[in-house]
Design a protein around this nucleic acid. Structure first.
Lengths: 349, 349
DNA sequence: GCATTATATGAAATCGATTTTAGAGTTTTA
DNA sequence: TAAAACTCTAAAATCGATTTCATATAATGC
């Protein structure tokens, strides 16, 4: 009847008493260890069921050795960015399946906050960490890697250390996007990038440049701009492009936040996509199809990144000594209607 | 030099030894308790600094009494929904400021998963929980509330129990939105709601109905549809509306996910907003301004909901006996361009 | 059939903190 | 000036699990 209302939590000791065995034995049953007689095992399991016992993970975590605490940390730069939410979901699903827990921290592009969280995570005795570092020279993360703390980086790497890494082929993704723009006829294409200090921003620029070069187009420095990965900078840089004496006919925006800013500026000026200005964005988001017109975008498999990163971290926990690995996932260009084949004719004349 | 590289974590015992005092004394210094002589205090603090000691939160959590473990749980139905991300951020900021930790769990609209997380959270010895329950008859959450476990509900309440609650005035928000639609000339307005079993879906319907009634308009049952809070159902229900012999001239969509679905359907049919069909959405999202045209929407203060919920939970931890409270926050109608004053004329003829 | 090994269990130590208990030295109070 | 009340600190107990160590019995080898 009122099983749950006996307030004080039942402990392993209670189970042991009930089953008439020692706590050590109960622990062995719990952890499926060898050398347990069938009769004792069923007796203990019965007691566990009767008492509705479930182990205290905190106590366990305190006792077990490194790497067996069943707690991971996940540190992301911006939880408002749906890309990282996908990563979170990927990690979460893997962790859930293994009965681990994951302590999700959002440092909101704030280096101080990242440091604080890093310390807190350690105080919580995490087994390992998945992180998209503030930037590639992130001192604290680098020093953790040097100390051999189990870390997997996602989205961005680290300078000067070898670390497990799951990224996307940013060059190729950008290349394909810009190539598509060129295919449909564009010759003047602007790149609106995120924060210069973040590797992905530069990689995507590289892909942009390569696509131009491979197609025999000139690379003009004033068609390349970097911002600060905030919505506002997407607006501002786009405005700068549109204000040029001879503005580009297409824009390649470096991440979803920037894309949103660009769209806002474009719409506010009453320009039509793709006829007045075409656009391809890095990051395919769940609202891309709801835009008017639907946005052509580079899909990053965020969920998969999260899954693979978690997997990689589990591997490292099992084999701390192994060499760091790097996984590069492919992007996919989701062609919708913001580039416009109609451009072709116009450009040909 | 190589302070950090001495792998084994320094413990309170090490500090005690170094300072030449007992562990109890170090603990007292750490917790700013009375009866510590100045000299001992500074000695201990010096040792802490020299050893770069930081306390193990897991060990602490095991020992301290209920409500002092510095760990909260936060359980949301869908982390991909930016509204909940705002709530998360609000909670996170409060928790961060108090040196608590928060275990964020996403049950992804899955009742089984919610149950699993609820158990896990208890195993992790959380002090209290902030949750947007699966629905208002969520048995597990209700039984926790009955057991007097510290819980604050957000977004949705619970049936049959009195619980701390932070919600938004859904009726009024919906009322204002629909009223606006009527103001600009619409007479046939469809409501595309989320899951019927979620209180907010019905509250928003109520506001919709009241606005019609207050304006002397008929409430037609076939202009009210409920879906399942998934993108796809927003698409489908909107299609149903548009396929009616005499379709509505405006749609009021019940949440951001539904809104996105509705927009997708509208655009795919080549209809123009607001001239062919107008739309107001519940939930103002950061991309609303980037839509074409910018979306008129009901802003829910998600961040503030999170803050207040965390605050309320802290209060409850301090005073477990107090009566449950309910906070109702206001929404704000963000008028942009998806309703169109232009409608007025057409409707008048 | 006896030494060895495998199986099965319990007692006690342990993880790293907080808290209780106890007691020594000081100050205040009556 | 003796009792009471503070002030300060240490030793030991504690939180709830896992792990080590010890030991008893059963199975196996030769």
């Amino acid at each position: 009847m009122r099983k749950k209302s006996e307030k004080s939590k039942v402990s392993l000791r209670d189970v042991a008493t009930r089953a008439g065995v020692s706590t050590a034995t109960v622990s062995r049953v719990l952890n499926k260890q060898n050398y347990i007689s069938h009769s004792v095992k069923t007796r203990v399991e019965k007691a566990i069921k009767e008492l509705d016992y479930s182990p205290n993970r905190v106590a366990r975590r305190l006792r077990v050795r490194d790497g067996e605490r069943r707690l991971l940390g996940l540190l992301v730069p911006d939880i408002q960015n749906p890309f990282y939410v996908d990563v979170i979901r990927g990690v979460e699903d893997m962790v859930f399946a293994r009965d681990y827990a994951v302590y999700i921290c959002n440092f909101a592009q704030n280096y101080e906050k990242e440091k604080t969280y890093l310390n807190k995570l350690q105080s919580e005795s995490i087994d390992g960490l998945i992180v998209a570092p503030y930037h590639e020279e992130d001192k604290m993360v680098i020093s953790l890697v040097r100390e051999k703390f189990p870390i997997v980086c996602v989205d961005r790497g680290l300078k000067g250390v070898d670390v497990d890494l799951v990224v996307v082929d940013n060059d190729k993704g950008a290349y394909n996007a810009v190539n598509h723009l060129i295919d449909v006829g564009h010759r003047r294409i602007g790149y609106v990038g995120g924060l210069y200090s973040i590797p992905t921003s530069r990689k995507r620029r590289d892909g942009y440049v390569k696509a131009l070069v491979d197609n025999g187009l000139d690379v003009e420095e004033d068609l390349i701009k970097f911002g600060d990965s905030k919505h506002e900078s997407g607006m501002r840089l786009t405005a700068e492009f549109l204000d040029m004496p001879r503005p580009p006919t297409a824009l390649f925006t470096g991440n979803n936040v920037i894309t949103l800013g660009a769209l806002e500026t474009i719409h506010s000026r009453g320009l039509a996509i793709p006829t007045d200005i075409a656009i391809v964005g890095f990051d395919d988001m769940f609202w891309a199809n709801s835009l008017n017109p639907p946005l052509t975008a580079v899909l990053q498999p965020g969920y998969e990144i999260g899954r693979q990163a978690a997997d990689m971290l589990f591997e490292r926990l099992e084999e701390p000594g192994r060499e760091p690995r790097k996984i590069v996932l492919n992007t996919r260009l989701m062609v919708r209607q913001s580039c416009g084949a109609g451009m072709l004719k116009e450009a040909e004349e």
